[in-house]
């Protein structure tokens, strides 16, 4: 039992064989470069706009490099966004940890302790990850009010833990399904019970599963907006809400929303760049069966 078994054939590793020659190879690269331009132009625009003096930002000179580099935008944006970045961090870290741990336990139970009704319960759980959250919004904040968590970051954390359960359960269930039952049987013979099997066999093998789930959940929660905008108050606002308010408000100077966008994007982008492999795996696992 090793990483191979956990790897459910979702990697995008290069295909080795199969030669392709031809006079049209330049067209392939032309196409790829064109696409690269499409994906990167906005990045260029964001960065140069963020680095311009507010007065130097005119629509006509949008694409020009700044004449003086105004790093101050980031200082201002940092000052404005630091509290919301901290909220986002607390939120994403706690809710990710909570939903990953519960999801791991659920995945273990659903894949290794089959009991009657599981085939009905599991799809009912999964449906929860597809619903438009508008359909639960009004009762949700009534509920949070009744338990005294409305406006508190803890309320938002609870919300994200619960609505994260379907996807984390799904990923862990598929992940643990690859671990042969024989391993569990031998542990049972050794006298291991429910928790013993989890602690001694599954949990130690779960590292890459946790990485996938943690990346996925962290990204989703960090980026979420609807709950964030309806369940928070000023002091508990995550970065997405602050950014939407700044950019959608009456800001006339575009350097700040652009610098703010970069700050809001950096954490998830870093994760993507450093742990891209696991990121892709989480993304493919999102399509139910993978």
């Amino acid at each position: 039992m090793s990483a191979q078994a956990q790897d459910v054939g979702l990697d995008l590793g290069r295909r080795r064989s199969g030669g392709r020659r031809g006079r049209f190879r330049w067209m392939i690269y032309a196409g790829l470069l064109l696409a690269t331009a499409f994906y990167l132009l906005p990045v260029y625009l964001v960065v140069v706009t963020a680095l311009k003096e507010p007065a130097a930002i005119t629509l006509a000179d949008t694409w020009r490099l700044p004449e003086t580099w105004n790093w101050g935008s980031f200082a201002t944006a940092w000052e404005a966004f630091a509290p919301t970045l901290r909220n986002s961090l607390v939120l994403a870290v706690s809710a990710t940890a909570g939903s990953a741990l519960l999801g791991s336990m659920n995945g273990y139970i659903l894949s290794k302790w089959r009991f009657p009704g599981a085939n009905v319960v599991f799809p009912l759980m999964l449906f929860g990850m597809f619903i438009p959250y508008q359909a639960i919004l009004i009762p949700l904040f009534q509920f949070l009010r009744d338990v005294g968590l409305y406006g508190d970051l803890a309320g938002l954390i609870l919300t994200h833990v619960v609505y994260g359960l379907p996807i984390t359960t799904l990923i862990f269930r598929n992940f643990y399904a690859e671990i042969p039952d024989e391993m569990l049987d031998s542990a049972k013979i050794d006298g291991a019970g429910f928790f013993g099997i989890y602690a001694r066999i599954l949990f130690p093998l779960s590292v890459s599963g946790f990485v996938v789930v943690v990346i996925w959940q962290f990204t989703q929660i960090w980026n979420e907006f609807l709950f964030a905008v309806t369940l928070t108050r000023q002091e508990t606002q995550p970065i997405t809400v602050a950014l939407a308010n700044l950019a959608g408000g009456e800001a006339v100077n575009w350097n700040l929303p652009m610098a703010g966008s970069i700050l809001a994007a950096l954490p998830t982008l870093l994760i993507y760049i450093v742990l891209g492999r696991y990121f892709i795996r989480g993304l493919l696992a999102g399509s139910v069966k993978g």
Binding site: L32, L41, L45, F225, L243, G260, S261, A264, L269, Y272
Partner: peptide, 28 residues
């Protein structure tokens, strides 16, 4: 290439929207 094509997926819709709103300004 793969990294470049996939990176926007890691962004928040709010970030994408803010950026593209600026990209699609009427005279810029």
């Amino acid at each position: 290439f793969r990294t470049i094509f996939l990176f926007p997926f890691a962004l928040a819709f709010i970030v994408t929207g803010t950026v593209w709103r600026w990209m699609l300004q009427p005279s810029g």
